[in-house]
Design a protein around this nucleic acid. Structure first.
Length: 544
RNA sequence: GCGCCUGUAGCUCAAUGGAUAGAGCAUUGGCCUUCUAAGCCAACGGUUGAAGGUUCGAAUCCUUCCAGGCGUGCCA
């Protein structure tokens, strides 16, 4: 594994102490034996036994140089899997807001990284497009007239929904019409369905617009909402009823009882599959979705990105799907939860008036702030260039701020830190890329022609080379753990090493024997940054 | 009550059981006649919430406690 500190070399082996313990021998003696048996003369300059029995390995510049010129950026995964990635999944009764940001950004980064590693990724946007909320919303839109529906802007779905909910509480006639609308939808009455479809088309448009502005890879055909599983639920329940001891009736509801789940009274907590009134819940839809993902999508692996409050839901869902035989045991089911977004005050991130911050407002503000900063830093850019750069920087900054942190923790949203451009931020990485692009532009050099072997005489060059060769293992870690912050940390550390190299090593002014090799280092760094940031859903810039 | 998650430098965060717990911001000081200074170099900053335990080795695993958050039968 990579060494913890530079003075310990490039890589270290630390399994010897444990092995020695099991073999009841002295760890340093064992390390000496291992060292005798190793044949790494072509690869390593030195291998040393250190401390209680570490092996510290320092790679040969010639080996590093050879790897950099001969090996591809990334070896494609041979045992490619079909991976379903369920992310974003907003409820369309509300306009997309900051609460949808993490699932969307993290899920998209993992989906892109899986694809980069050679897996077949099937994106699934499991949107909330069905249920009581839409009865209210459609009944309300009915009341205020078709004009509201015609208003393609659909200014603020959330405000409409709040109004509809208030009317539902205060106006019993309206409440009745809402319930009737739900029933009409469930009965697939053409009139009601037409209204619903019309509304959904607008909502999908809004969603696509947000994705496009955020550069999220979800497409309309990836949308498979709750409504898509309506027809499958009935037959699924019939199937489950044929199995012994799976579905149990309790207080009129159909439930699955699993002894490992206890409620607050210490009794077994049921997973309700059908309510006493015959309605279905999110558990039910998710079961049907899992069945679809196994039977129709042939998933080897299913990943879910939702907030941490749903941990219990997914534990029950996965356990029930195994118990009921909906998903076979060789399919990997993984819930990847994340924490909340907090404001500076440590409370959930809201606007001053206490409302959810809408994503389109957030995007607008990010671009506006980036634009102002760029104007300050580089006044020589023309209007059009500045605008494009501002967008790329703004979106990159917002995404990277989220992706660079361990997703399990809550994270604090702070504009100034995000767009600070120092430290572990997207603009810092983008700046490094722009600097490299500047070298090739200034020298009028075709980057694709740079394949000379670098000499790696200086330690900064060697350090950069060692780091460049780690890209593969980091991508594999992200694929395994679905944690994009591993990739962020790597790209940041790589960039730090590039910046040191850039400061210490002139390139264009050097004689060809040095210059050409250094250009190869630049090329490889640029490719790694471009590909790595691309896997995170962030674009690079030729100039900034 | 029970279950899950979180607690690391003033702030925001890393550390995949490994060696002296690392970065950035903030603070202080250096470096542009030389490929973009949105950069580089350095200093300062720690009882990893607390106490036990396991281990050659613990921020990481186990136990108890403290603090905060979330979940816990017909919302998602």
């Amino acid at each position: 594994m990579p060494a913890g500190r530079p003075e310990f070399g490039d890589y270290q082996a630390n399994g010897i102490m444990g092995a020695a313990k099991r073999m009841r021998t002295n760890p340093r003696e064992l390390a000496a034996k291992v060292l005798d048996d190793l044949e790494l003369d072509d690869i390593a300059d030195s291998i040393e036994i250190a401390g209680p029995g570490f092996l510290n390995i320092r790679l040969k510049p010639s080996f590093l140089s050879e790897q950099l010129t001969d090996s591809p950026l990334l070896e494609i995964e041979e045992s490619a899997k079909r991976v379903v990635v369920d992310y974003s999944s907003p409820n369309l009764a509300k306009e997309m807001h900051v609460g949808h940001l993490r699932s969307t950004v993290i899920g998209d980064a993992v989906a892109r990284t899986l694809e980069l590693a050679g897996h077949v990724v099937i994106r699934q946007n499991h949107i909330g497009d069905w249920g009581t909320a839409f009865g209210r919303l459609l009944a309300f839109l009915d009341d205020i007239g078709d004009k509201a529906l015609q208003d393609a802007e659909l200014r603020n779905i959330e405000a409409l929904y709040v109004e509809a909910s208030q009317k539902f509480e205060s106006d019993s006639a309206f409440a009745d019409r809402s319930r009737a609308m739900v029933l009409a939808l469930q009965a697939h009455e053409p009139n009601a369905i037409a209204k619903w479809e019309h509304f959904m088309a607008l909502a999908q448009e809004h969603m696509s617009d947000v994705y496009s502005r955020l550069d999220i890879s979800l497409q309309p055909q990836d949308t498979r909402g709750e409504s898509a599983y309506n027809a499958a639920i009935g037959p699924m329940i019939e199937d489950l009823q044929k199995k012994d001891n799976v579905l149990v009736e309790s207080d009129g509801a159909l439930c699955i009882f699993m002894p490992q789940f206890k409620n607050k009274d210490g009794e077994i907590q049921p997973m309700i599959v059908r309510k006493s009134d015959g309605g279905y819940l999110y558990h039910t839809t998710d079961l049907a979705a899992l069945r679809y993902r196994q039977q129709t999508l042939f998933a080897d692996r299913v990943l879910y990105f939702t907030d941490a409050r749903q941990i219990l839901h997914f534990e029950m869902l996965f356990a029930a799907s195994r118990l009921a035989g909906i998903v076979s045991s060789d399919v990997m089911l993984e819930h990847h939860p994340f924490g909340k977004i907090l404001g500076d005050d440590g409370k959930p991130f809201k606007s001053r008036s206490g409302e959810n911050i809408l994503l389109r407002d957030l995007i607008d503000e990010a671009i506006e702030r980036a634009n102002a900063l760029i104007h300050q830093k580089n006044p020589y850019l023309d209007e059009e260039q500045r605008h494009t750069i501002a967008q790329t920087i703004a979106i990159g900054a917002v995404k990277y701020a989220d992706l660079s942190k361990n997703r399990l923790h809550d994270y604090t949203f702070n504009w100034d830190e995000m767009l600070a451009f120092d430290g572990n931020t997207a603009p810092y990485l983008q700046y490094a890329y722009a600097r490299i692009a500047g070298i090739f532009e200034k020298g009028n050099i075709d980057i694709t022609q740079c394949t000379a072997s670098p000499r790696l005489d200086l330690e900064v060059e060697r350090q950069l080379a060692v780091y460049l060769l780690r890209f593969q293992e980091v991508v594999e870690q992200v694929v395994t753990d679905a944690k994009p912050h591993y990739l962020c940390s790597f790209l940041y550390e790589l960039t730090v090493r590039f910046m040191r190299f850039y400061e210490q090593c002139p390139i264009l002014s050097e004689e060809p024997s040095i210059k050409d090799g250094r250009l190869t280092l630049c090329r490889r760094t640029a490719e790694t940054l471009n590909t790595g940031l691309g896997a995170l859903g962030i674009k690079v810039l030729e100039r900034m």
